[in-house]
Design a protein around this nucleic acid. Structure first.
Lengths: 193, 193, 193, 193
DNA sequence: CATGAATGAGCGTTCATTCAT
DNA sequence: TATGAATGAACGCTCATTCAT
């Protein structure tokens, strides 16, 4: 227990420090030595838990993906109506990215660039399942247009990410009203009559 | 004149080589020595024209922005109707990104991360003017909803970029039909009645 | 007693593992952590018995020297004739090195480079005594030429080591016939008519 | 010419410094940074000429082998008698190793260990040719015993190396008389009648 | 103007050694 | 005693930048 706690504690410190550091300075300007300093462990300790910097990034990606997946589908009910599920997914995603700036910046810059493998790969199993469930029901019940999955994902995720980037980069202040504005526009864009 | 031509010729070779190289391997794996080799100039020559690698990236960003601005508003008429102008902007943007993979990858990975300064900064004066003109007319004539500029930009650019990323990363093949699908959805999302 | 046994048992395991490891990969590629794993003890345990890696090598050298000394002069009789003693020393040495590859590689690569101190230091007290006894008798009885001790040692040991290196490195297969060939040549080279 | 000279000058400085450094401290304790300091060039410069530390060692081995090969067969005449050629090879080899301590230590510790490939690989083409020519003539004219090539090489090289190691490690002082003593013993060991 | 050899700070990674348990 | 997680100095190597030619 003490062992496990210590190990998990260290890994958590490393993850947190990595997210902060990468949000601060990007992949370059983020040497392992600085990460060690920020995480308050030695460089050697990082290599005790991760075989390389690349693997650390990969593990961090999976860590964030899981964290995001759990958070976003919290209170999400498969039995809810399509519009309710759309609202839940859209708003939860926005709020998650809004409240977890470091996660957002990391996912945007690293995970979604060359570590990623497919369109849905950035979503955890939970989240992908919720999204696909919503999508199939919505199409099947003629609630939304029968468009390609990629189009739908780009419409929602793409616009959300774009808006949050503006917010986190300080070009604008993203308030709840604007979030709803975007959500309604996207909904109007995909709904059937 | 001959001098100027030589200089401009070299700078063009450097820009082209940089875009290729960065699309190939990202910012790391792109040393100045390799750029020099690809551009068929010496390292020293690059430093004659650009004071540092960072400044080169910045200049490249402006170069691409201008190029894109000129291309996208080609044949664009301020006097056309709002829907026509929407179609022109949307489709031109899509086609430009589709046919200029290196520009897209560069703008997405580099320009929009550290180097950018404001929401519209990624658009050239030409393009920003065309977009704002369209936007004001569209609002004023009650053709589209009166939403924030940022929301509108994220809806269009954000979803376009998201979809093109999927295409250029090889997760999907983006055909004309899908482009139209996206364009229509976005339009349905922003149009008034 | 049980304590001592445990300690000696551990030290033996460490020595064996070290010889294997060093023969496998040389001094580099032989971290203490790997040694600990191979010896099935913890790193800390090794440092209980040896103050440093260098000291461990030194102790290992002495261990091997003693082992070799005991083995080579087994059945060696000071009362035997000079040629008989020559044969015994020469052949025993060859067979020892032949059958103990790890010892040979270690003595050749490590012990004889930095850690050694004198010409005879590589020989255990036993072996040095046997060799010097043979040498003095042989000179005194005019059985061999009156040459310098170092010349004699280099003739025998040097050529034996050279041949065994070829064998253990896989450049040749050292059979009994070749050993005898070498032994006879050396003998012809040092004997007095 | 100036370019070539500068390059060759640097490479020579690197080779010399490497030989000194390796003789001083072995492969470990010989970091590239120290080599750079000793060679009075920067680390980067070394990597300009050699792709890696291992390749540098390999190139150095070939450099020394060629140098040795040229030196040892200087004044060597294929037409000389077998005993004359034996004397020349034996004594030249001894004198070369005697006067080039760093070369000797390097060849003994590195080249002959795991960078080497075969029994004759440590000899340059020149030297190998001279040696094999001598050997074949000597066997064919019944001047020396018909023994395996490896045995012969180990008798000569092995004993020479062993004796020179004692000298260069400071255990003895190798004078001309002792060299002749060894040469004669080996000759007596291999000659026919 | 143009070159590219030379530089050296800085990187990712290893591993001998320590020490809290 | 015995452990092995933790340490950080030191390594091999890269690459943005400079400057003699």
């Amino acid at each position: 227990m003490a062992r496990t706690s210590k190990k998990e504690f260290n890994i958590d410190k490393i993850y947190s420090a990595a997210l902060e550091m990468l949000a601060d300075g990007g992949f370059h300007k983020s040497p392992m030595s600085l990460l060690a300093k920020r995480a308050e462990v030695s460089v050697g300790t990082i290599y005790l838990y991760f075989p390389s910097k690349d693997q650390l990034i990969l593990s961090l990606f999976e860590h964030v993906r899981e964290h995001m997946g759990e958070w976003v589908v919290k209170d999400f009910k498969d039995s809810a109506s399509v519009p309710e599920r759309y609202d839940a997914l859209f708003l939860n995603l926005c709020h998650y990215y809004l409240e977890n700036k470091n996660h957002f910046v990391f996912m945007d810059q690293f995970a979604l660039s060359h570590y990623n493998q497919s369109a849905l790969a950035a979503l955890s199993a939970n989240l992908a399942k919720a999204f696909l469930g919503f999508y199939q029901d919505a199409i099947h019940t003629h609630t939304i247009k029968n468009i390609r999955l990629e189009t739908l994902l780009s419409l929602t995720h793409g616009s959300i990410i774009s808006l949050l980037k503006k917010h986190h980069m300080g070009f604008m202040n993203l308030d709840e009203e604007t979030i709803l504005e975007l959500k309604n526009c996207v909904w109007d864009g995909i709904k059937l009559t």
